[in-house]
Structure formats: structure tokens, C-alpha cells
């Protein structure tokens, strides 16, 4: 091991690694800093590298343009997806891992098969189906779609999490006379909580960042999620684009993800590598 790590001198390793890391983080950091320029400074040629005068103008304009509503839509869509997907995945993961019932294998295969057929290839019919259900007009429709996106990975993760719990724990609870649901809630859930965190995180990022479905399935500006309203800002301006507002919108789209990741990255990384590699 020692020889292995020593081949690259520490100084070079940290210099190159540090530079690379900076390159990865800089764009977002720079965007956040730049959002505090004034509107004119943001759109000026040549660009300033750091704000000359610090201003909240872009944020004020963003609120004035009513974009806060779209931020809220994104929050609602993401929150709804997190709740729905987490609950469904916990239940299904529990069912698939701890019960032997008829068609169990087939049904699990059906769930996993959705990984093979991406949603982008069923957009036309999904639109027709949602339209028939009168769900193209609403955030509820989006939450439904995003929840389905998050299910295969989530169920997979939760099944693995439940399967890893020693049977003795569950049996002890059943011996004590606890019902199935009570066992799940009181005894198992605390044990599998890292898996739950992973599923919730995954659902959040899916819903918060999704673009194509939101572009197609939402009808009006007041229902757009953040990424879509920014696309409108960009294309609808015809030479009069307000760059400051557009990019401040991007700050709102990026920063929550970054913060949540920084706080909970342990679960994110564990979920991705653990779940994926076992698969």
C-alpha cells in the first residue's frame, strides 16, 4: 500500500487534485457570486469577473417577475415526490424483501423493467394518458410522473435494505404480538433509515431537476417548475433577455441541490454505489 500511494508525490497530488476540484466547484460558485452584480453589470461587455458593486437587484427583479411562484412549484413538486416515492418504496421494498407471495418474482421484474425503458421514449402516450385523466394541468400530474421515475431505483434500494435486516429482529417483534405495520414502523424503519434517506434524496433530485416532462406536461406559466420557466425567459425575450434574472433563477435551481448534497452526501454516495454495484 505504501508504495502504491507514494508514486505520485504528495505536492503534485494535492496541486493537481486541488486545481481539478476547483474547476469542478468554480462554475457554481462563480454563478452565485455573479448573481449579486447589478442587472446592468451582469449584462455588460466585457464581463466583470467579480461584482464591482454588490446588489440584490437581480433577486428583486426575480421576485417582481413572479418567478418566486415557480420556485414554489418546484418545491411542491419535489416535496410531493419525496413523500410519495419514499412511502411507496418503503412499503414495496418491505413487501418484496420480507414476504413470499404469488407472482413476487414477476412483479419485481416488472418494476425493474422500467429501468430498461426510459420515460423519454413513452412521452407521447404518457401525455395522452395524463390528458385523459385531466392531469396535464397540474403539479399533481408531475408528482405522479416523478414518483414513477423514482420507484425502480427506490424499490431496489429498499428491498436490499430490508433484506439486510436480520430476521431475528422482526421475529422478536412478531412474537411480542406486534402487527405487521407496527413492526415495520417501530422496529424495522429505524434500522433501514439510511436507505430511506437515500431514496428520499434520489426522489428530490429527480423532481427538482427534471426538465422534459415539466416542459410538456405543465400548461401555464403559473404552473411551471423552475427549469421550465427559465427556458421561457430565455426564448421569449427576443434580443431583450434579462441575463441577471435568468442566471439568478439558475442559482435558485442549483443551490438547494448543492446544499442538500453537502449535508447528506453520505447517504447519496452509499445509495448509488451500494445499490448499483450489488445490481
Amino acid at each position: 500500500m505504501t508504495r502504491r500511494t507514494a508514486w505520485l508525490p504528495a505536492i503534485a497530488f494535492y496541486a493537481i487534485g486541488g486545481l481539478l476540484a476547483l474547476l469542478f466547484v468554480a462554475p457554481v460558485g462563480w454563478l452565485v457570486l455573479a448573481s449579486f452584480k447589478s442587472g446592468t453589470e451582469f449584462a455588460q461587455t466585457p464581463p466583470t469577473y467579480l461584482p464591482q458593486t454588490w446588489s440584490l437587484e437581480n433577486y428583486r427583479r426575480l421576485v417582481e417577475a413572479g418567478l418566486f411562484r415557480n420556485v414554489l412549484n418546484s418545491v411542491v413538486a419535489a416535496a410531493g415526490t419525496v413523500v410519495a416515492a419514499t412511502v411507496l418504496c418503503v412499503l414495496a421494498g418491505y413487501g418484496f424483501a420480507r414476504f413470499r407471495f404469488r407472482f413476487r418474482g414477476v412483479l419485481f421484474l416488472v418494476v425493474l423493467s422500467t429501468l430498461m425503458i426510459p420515460f423519454q421514449s413513452i412521452v407521447p402516450s404518457l401525455y395522452v394518458i395524463l390528458d385523459t385523466l385531466h392531469l396535464t394541468n397540474s403539479l399533481a400530474g408531475l408528482i405522479l410522473v416523478y414518483t414513477v421515475f423514482a420507484l425502480p431505483f427506490g424499490i431496489f434500494t429498499m428491498r436490499a435494505a430490508f433484506a439486510a435486516v436480520p430476521a431475528a429482529i422482526e421475529e422478536a417483534a412478531i412474537m411480542d404480538g406486534a402487527g405487521t405495520l407496527t413492526t415495520l414502523r417501530r422496529v424495522l424503519l429505524p434500522v433501514v433509515s439510511p436507505g430511506v434517506a437515500t431514496v428520499a434524496l434520489y426522489a428530490f433530485f429527480t423532481a427538482w431537476n427534471e426538465f422534459l416532462a415539466a416542459l410538456i406536461f405543465t400548461t401555464r406559466q403559473e404552473q411551471y417548475t423552475l427549469p421550465v420557466v427559465l427556458a421561457n425567459l430565455q426564448t421569449g425575450a427576443g434580443g431583450l433577455l434579462n441575463w441577471g434574472v435568468l442566471e439568478t433563477g439558475a442559482v435558485f435551481a442549483a443551490v438547494p441541490c448543492v446544499l442538500i448534497f453537502l449535508i447528506l452526501q453520505r447517504y447519496y454516495v452509499a445509495g448509488l454505489t451500494g445499490g448499483a454495484v450489488k445490481g
Binding site: D131, T136, T219, R220
Partner: peptide
């Protein structure tokens, strides 16, 4: 979006 809304009764 308009067509969508008309069909959705909205």
C-alpha cells in the same frame, strides 16, 4: 398549451 387547456376544460 391552449389546445391542452381547451381539452382539459380549463
Amino acid at each position: 398549451k391552449y389546445v391542452q387547456a381547451v381539452r382539459g376544460g380549463d
